[in-house]
Amino acid sequence: MNTKLEIQDGAAAQEFIKGLWKENPVFVAVLGMCPALAVTNSGINGLAMGLATTFVLISSSVLVSLLRNAIPKQVRITAYIVIIATFVTVIDFLLAAFFPDIHKELGAFIALIVVNCLILGRQESFASKNSVGLAVMDAAGMSFGFTFALLCIGLIREVLGSGSIFGFGLFGEGFEPWIVMILPPGGFFALGFLLLGFNWYAQRKKAMA
């Protein structure tokens, strides 16, 4: 295993930044589509889902990275799933206890964080091969990138579909909301246009370079 024993500032920052932009899990890697489409009908829901995922991803990465030499490779996926599922259930209980409204809105999608391929993917391809420090940076970058993407989709859908931002009305009485945007198809529309914009920008940058 190519374990980096020392954390260089440059390397750590690199691991963090790549998740935010260059390897953004939603806009570039197109991972974790189920929550990205399903719960982003408002800004606050997107943000809450992103933060719940952040908690699970960072905690699991720390544990997987710490245990990377203790877990035999034959059972590693099972062990990762046990770790991830534990953290998901913990956040599920905590949200139900302290943020019952958000828990009600997100419903079954909290439990479904377990099967978010972004999380298992980072354990398998990064946390299990790198030191704790780098794993945390990678997990933080990826999950902030994920949260950012969900927040973008959520805000676009909320502004167009409900005419508000974080529940505050924007346009007054005269605005007829595009209800389709807060229904499931709206998730695909918003994501589609964001992917289009992202790819167009990336290509243009490549062409200019």
Binding site: V82, T86, T89, V90
Partner: peptide
């Protein structure tokens, strides 16, 4: 044994969070 320990610890954590919340 590895999976058994993992399951056991996970179970302990879940029970304590459950009882707390």
């Amino acid at each position: 044994l590895t999976l058994g320990i993992a399951g056991f610890i996970s179970g302990l954590i879940l029970v304590s969070v459950y009882l707390y919340t």
